[in-house]
Amino acid sequence: MEPNLTDKDAGTAAARPLLETRLERYGAVGLILALAVGSMLISSYHLSLLTTITIFAFSAMGLNLLSGNAGLISIAHAAFMGLGAFTAAWFAIDLGIPILIAIILAGIVSAGVGLLFGIPSLRLSGLYLILATFAAQIILYWFFEQALWLTKSPDGRFVGIPEVMGFEFGDPWHYYLLVLVFTIAGAVVYLNILRSGLGRSLEVIKERPIVSQMMGVNLQRTKLIAFTIGHFYAGVAGALYGWHLQFVATEAFDLMGSIELLVMIIIGGLGSLAGAVLGATFIVVVPELLDMAGRRLVDDMGLMAPIRMFIYGLLVVIFLIYEPHGLARTWRKLVRYFNKKLFKNKNEH
């Protein structure tokens, strides 16, 4: 036994790859290319949906880190997205800070506030923690309605067309590419976290907090890091969402929004990147399909909203019972199956 980690040991084990299987690696590159090119070809309505999915996938990564990996269930994620959206608008429009920097700053503000709300939550877990995050949701929402210096009106504020270094994102496709770049970066960081010591400590404090402490994991610190990173994602996603709609609507960041995000990662799959992406896709696409079906079946569109909620609820229950690991688990099985078939002899993993 060496007393310390020495260079001598290195090389006998390969570093963990970002994505486990070759199929996933090729698939990820293919998906990115398909999205970048395909987004140019689809109608503006579908592009708008795709942008929404991508932004929510980004946001869901943060929530998945917090709730899926670290087990700190939050129903305030949408409020932190709102905080990001409003602060980014404030930085960029009121203070004249360049948009890219404003987006990052919005993430940092959201992370900081998330950290602050995290501190009193340190001693809580389970149901009590959910109640604490519920309080955060209510407080932040109330703040949006009151702090008119930030939000301009209780309903929200217009943010106009984003502009980066003289380049106007008037074309939604260009804006989509920007969102895509952010989301890819977010995904890479998320995967890095999962394969490093940080990812391990998040997982272990979820399953056995007391044992983990005795194994040398600083429980409080790890929780606070989860709060910080998770809400950084929320803030950046919120900022991107604001410029996507060109209007930051307070309403979009209410409790329902937070619950939808939680539903996303439950249906998508807790604790994985695929879970965040699949969940976001699911939650945007399914209502669209329901609306399409609804238009044929129901004359009164007002009925659709409660029906949609009912179906969400039903799906969550069904997933919790039959596939508690979400779509991502199903996805993994498919990937493993096809990876074996396709790369039978050449694959090292």
Binding site: L5, G11, A14, A15, R16, N192, R195, S196, G197
Partner: peptide
Amino acid sequence: QCLYWGPYGCSREEQMLQAE
């Protein structure tokens, strides 16, 4: 740990621990 790669990452350390 978020960055993982490069001189500012944690990959080397991770690799050594994994080998051990």
